[in-house]
């Protein structure tokens, strides 16, 4: 894998001057993933903060070919680009080796784009799909998605007198994609840049579809100061809310295993979207939260320690 020094010499394909917020995790995720391509790459984005903020006509922050089609179909769109590449390469009309990557937020990936993603993964296109997961529909103003954490207050799952924010646990998208028997799936975080770039390199290197689920904190949606993005991403990993793992040819492996998990409350208390959980009388909710995180973590550890592929690709 490339050293930090080598990475600094790779071109930045998403240039500065885009209109994403200060402290936005999405642009960090995209830049780190693109460093891992290390080859000509065509990028696609679902409708999202990323798309509207990087392509306000007539400007573009993309220094590599880029296409945005619609909200739910980044996977199908890049699949079409990749198919065209294969056809034209076979006919000798293109000679370069080109990589293909699609980016989507959690709304565009876990929810409305799930069918398109599933189809593209199953068909085996040589492409990387990256979900930058900030846990809500941030572009439209912080609405709940199936990636929103339990207990988070969003504009469509507000914490009220009777309902303490979102009542459901996050969908385990990486596991769902892994069950498509694709060669590479990983979960990563913008806080662990080396891990993320290495995973991106692996994702681009495999022959076939790869999926990366990258935690990308959102200061506006999570309600924390702009400068704490990396701290929040790191705590999500250290508390076990966002484990780092990879599934290579069906074999599950933890990328980071702390000796002891930090209490989930340490991550929750820094975010305004969870502040109602810290009001008097909500102690049982916090206990339930910790139980859920610990159980999910334990199940993941067991899955990884089993050392046997649950499903083998090919």
């Amino acid at each position: 894998m490339a050293s930090l020094k080598e990475l600094t010499h790779r071109p930045d394909l998403l240039t500065g001057g885009h209109r994403l917020c200060a402290g936005c995790g999405a642009s960090i995720a995209v830049r780190q993933v693109l460093l891992g391509a290390n080859a000509p790459v065509v990028a696609c984005s679902a409708t999202s903060c990323l798309e509207v903020s990087t392509t306000p006509y007539p400007y573009s922050a993309w220094k590599t070919p880029f296409i945005h089609n619609a909200f739910e179909n980044a996977a199908a769109t890049i699949a079409g680009v990749e198919a065209a590449y294969r056809a034209l390469k076979r006919k000798g009309k293109i000679d370069k080796d080109v990589k293909f990557v699609a980016f989507g937020g959690d709304g565009g990936t876990y929810d409305i784009g799930l069918q398109s993603l599933s189809g593209a993964m199953e068909r085996g296109h040589n492409m990387v799909y990256v979900c930058y997961d900030n846990g809500a529909y941030m572009n439209t103003g912080i609405q709940r998605s199936s990636a929103t954490p339990f207990g988070a207050s969003t504009t469509t799952s507000p914490a009220g007198k009777m309902v303490p924010g979102k009542l459901q646990w996050r969908k385990d998208l990486a596991a769902i994609v892994a069950d498509h028997c694709v060669p590479y799936v990983a979960q990563a975080s913008v806080s662990h840049w080396k891990d993320l770039v290495e995973k991106a390199e692996k994702a681009f290197a495999v022959d076939g579809p790869a999926f990366l689920n990258v935690l990308a904190p959102c200061p506006r949606g999570w309600r924390f100061p702009n400068e704490k993005t990396i701290e929040l991403a790191k705590l999500a990993v250290q508390t076990g809310y966002w484990p780092l793992f990879e599934v290579e040819d069906g074999v599950w492996r933890l990328s980071f295993k702390p000796k002891d998990l930090k209490p989930i409350a340490e991550w929750l208390k820094l975010q305004g979207r969870f502040k109602h959980l810290f009001k008097p009388g909500k102690e049982t909710l916090l206990e339930e939260y910790q139980r859920l995180v610990s159980n999910k973590w334990q199940r993941l550890v067991e899955r990884c320690e089993a050392g046997q592929p649950s499903l083998v690709s090919g």
Partner: peptide, 28 residues
């Protein structure tokens, strides 16, 4: 034929993939 044939999972993805493939520069 020399065609790349994509068996998509829906018509929405059919036209989405056609858009990607045509934008890429191929005849679709």
């Amino acid at each position: 034929v020399d065609t790349e044939y994509i068996n998509v999972e829906s018509e929405h993805s059919a036209m989405s993939a056609c858009i990607g493939a045509s934008a890429a520069g191929s005849r679709v």
